[in-house]
């Protein structure tokens, strides 16, 4: 390998890392720094960490009050638990819906697979916000869904669908389904169909063959899809804000309120840092265990 090649190879690796350092780690450090300062009236609305005391001594003032509040006030703990719960259930629903979809696409004749995959990602061609707004039109009391049910005579008065947890689940599952289907498809398409024939040959009925061969071999896709849905869903703000009820206090919404309405930047930052830790630590442990296996 020549020197130019080696430099080129390092550059390819270094560039994305530099990007991440600059635009991910940098902002994170700023947020972490704000989380450790006291709230203050002014611009910016927090006190500096390094201060000159009256005796002209430079002191570092770290305020852990915001983090303490997170644990003391059940409002915040509830918001975390609710968010984790909503994200988990949504990811599970996406898995249950997405697995058969991905499996069907993987088994479809090769010339039709690309079309089916295109249909899965087709919603991305419209703005995310518009698609969530469209659900308001479908779910509201005089909306498309209630209208259809009423005219079919299945219900006598409109169902309350919008501004409920149901609407939040519908919105999240709808928006995140492609992130489940694509990694599942990728693993299922790579599955050698001869393995299933071998299972059948050795006496496994189709369901048994699925449980003992297809499912364990698609586990990487299940984990990837689950993470891709679960992680962004925990901090999701737009969907609960537009479709959820007033009592749907999820972390994303609480964070927004702290930041923009209460102008308590240290509190909002503490919420964000805690959210990151809540997600990163279990995933890191999981990765570590998976790598050891």
């Amino acid at each position: 390998m020549t020197g130019t090649q080696r430099i080129g190879r390092r550059l390819v690796v270094a560039l994305p890392y530099a990007w991440l350092l600059l635009f991910f780690l940098g902002p994170f450090l700023i947020v972490a720094r704000i989380a450790l300062s006291e709230a203050a009236l002014g611009i910016p609305p927090y006190a500096p960490l390094l201060r000159w005391t009256e005796e002209n001594v430079l002191t570092l003032v770290l305020n852990l009050g915001s983090f303490a509040t997170l644990f003391d006030d059940p409002f915040y703990v509830d918001a975390y638990l609710r968010s984790l719960n909503v994200a988990f259930v949504s990811a599970l629903l996406c898995l249950l819906l997405g697995y058969p979809m991905a499996y069907a696409i993987a088994l479809a004749p090769a010339h039709r697979r690309n079309l089916l995959l295109l249909l899965v990602i087709l919603p991305f061609w419209t703005s995310f916000l518009l698609r969530v707004m469209a659900w308001i039109g479908i779910l509201q009391d005089q909306g498309v869904l209630n209208g259809a049910l009423l005219s079919l005579g299945l219900i006598d008065e409109p169902l309350r669908l919008l501004y409920t947890d149901f609407a939040v689940y519908v919105g999240i599952v709808y928006c995140y389904l492609p992130f489940m289907v694509l990694p599942l498809y990728a693993t299922l398409a790579r599955l050698d169909p001869v393995l299933l024939q071998a299972a059948a040959d050795l006496g496994a009925r189709p369901f048994r063959a699925f449980v003992t061969v297809t499912l364990p071999l698609s586990l990487p896709g299940i984990v990837a899809g689950f993470m891709l849905v679960f992680i962004p869903a925990v901090g999701e703000f737009v969907i609960p804000e537009l479709l959820g009820g007033p009592d749907a206090q999820l972390v994303g919404r609480v964070l927004w309120v702290e930041f923009f309405q209460n102008r308590d930047w240290p509190m909002a930052s503490a919420l964000a840092v805690a959210l990151l830790l809540v997600l990163v630590i279990p995933i890191a442990v999981f990765q570590h265990l998976a790598a050891r296996r």
Binding site: Q197, A198, A199, A200, D201, L202, G203, A209, P216
Partner: peptide, 20 residues
């Protein structure tokens, strides 16, 4: 008789061993 009930077994060309 479906394959999973036949008293017949097959050794596949690619061996088709379960990798997991």
């Amino acid at each position: 008789v479906p394959p999973y009930e036949r008293p017949v077994n097959m050794m596949f060309q690619s061996y088709a061993l379960f990798p997991h």
